[in-house]
Amino acid sequence: MLARVANNLFWMGRYIERAEHTARFMNVNYFSSLDAPNKLSQSRKFVLQSIATMVGDVPKKEKDLSEEDIIYNVGLNPEKPYSIFNCIKYARENANTSRDSMSTEFYESINKFYHYVNDFPKELLIKSGLHDFTTHVIEQTSILRGRIRSTLLHDEIYALVLLGINIERATQIIRIIKTKHEDAQKALGGYSKPIENSFEWTTLLKCCESYDMNRRFYKKTPNQNTTLEFLLLNPNCPRSVMNSLNQIQNHMATIDSLKERDKTSAAFLVGKMRAEYEFKTVEEIETDVSKFIDYTLQGLANICTKLDYEYFNY
């Protein structure tokens, strides 16, 4: 397979996944803030700040945080590289450049999806369409993943797309945790005082579509301990970093099964990180959550750099 095409497939996977997480983050934060238990987490500024932090574009002055701007920028603004519109546009462009290796069914889905986003009116999004828009984006990305799984040959093309999806998923989950962890530190209080029981942990789980399953697994109100353990370390939670790392390792093996023993390879790096995660405990993490978050982000970035160098360097 061409290195350029491989790179495009990888990024197509990343952009599809990124669109979904961005849409869900905006959706959950916006709507959960409407009846949040304390004053700060109910305030517009607080939730807008949180959304702006997630996409990495926080205005310098707090008074510049306008609700309309932020919803438009994150949703549809073609000028903002992080907007959902651009994620879908880039995903489709990447699919375009490798159209000969895609199935017609998959291409048709992504193309239709792009036209939906492209035709969505700005005014509608800002005034009343936020819920419909983000929900539709989340549903369409699920359809795309379904089409990928059910219509592509499960060979290295498939592995590369899934590699992109899982690396992006792990990265986004970590970034969401980072943002909400910071929120939890700021918005103390509510049902009870300390940060361990903050309302923000519930929001965090909802942002990762893991709230119901978390309740089922622990049978109690989420707190810092159970939330972090679930989202970082539980291999059975489909959104956890552990789960993504397991999948990343599998797909690396499809692309190049011989490289794992080469200690300079990306496959080796993935194996190493996965092994570290497997035997990590939440108690170790809790002593310094921020440090562990940054460490994980750095680890994922290193894997990408290695992948770039090893496979996509054309």
Binding site: M1, L2, A3, R4, A6, I255, D256, Y311, F312, Y314
Partner: peptide, 11 residues
Amino acid sequence: ENDFVYMKTIT
């Protein structure tokens, strides 16, 4: 290279 044409693949 040496008057032969190659494509750049992942391998």
